[in-house]
């Protein structure tokens, strides 16, 4: 809960301070300082958790690739798992490291059109890739 609260204040910061940097907000009140320290610790923990998750996901990709080599699973199964893992990894980095958890409400209007264009581009390419016209 405290983490969410901090994300709000973190995100809203730019509302009230415009171009001022985050580093300028010093908390003079004792209670605030305590809350700030708690939030900072929560943030630190979330960064470390995401880092560990990214390492585990990378290992999963590598292991699935080796399983294909061993003939245990089919290349298609492995490719599907590996690409899903890549999307999850990218999501983790964007959501936590790039602070989209706090900033999505502010950047979605420039992100969504691009995502639509990218998905459309891949869909337009699909017939050639999948059917191969052969």
């Amino acid at each position: 809960m405290s983490e969410q609260h901090h994300d709000h204040s973190h995100g809203d910061h730019s509302h009230s301070h415009g171009d001022h940097s985050h580093g300028e907000h010093s908390h003079s009140h004792g209670g605030d300082a305590h809350g700030h320290a708690d939030d900072a610790a929560a943030h630190f923990r979330s960064y470390i958790a995401i880092f560990i998750a990214l390492c585990v996901f990378t290992a999963i990709s590598f292991v699935f690739n080796e399983l294909v080599r061993g003939g245990i699973i089919s290349p298609m199964t492995s490719a599907t798992v590996i690409m899903i893992v890549a999307i999850i990894k990218a999501g983790c980095v964007a959501y936590i490291f790039m602070h989209l958890k706090a900033d999505w409400g502010k950047v979605y209007c420039i992100m969504i059109p691009v995502v639509i264009m990218c998905v459309m581009m891949i869909i337009v390419f699909l017939p050639d890739g999948v059917l191969g016209w052969r």
């Binding site: 699935f64 492995s78 690409m83 893992v85 890549a86 980095v93 964007a94 490291f97 790039m98």
Partner: peptide
């Protein structure tokens, strides 16, 4: 700069499986 760096990381997250694994 961090935003930029994380994006570079995300690009590699896709390049690695596409070139080395799948």
């Amino acid at each position: 700069t961090g935003l930029y760096w994380h994006f570079v990381d995300i690009v590699w997250i896709f390049l690695f499986p596409l070139l080395y694994l799948v």
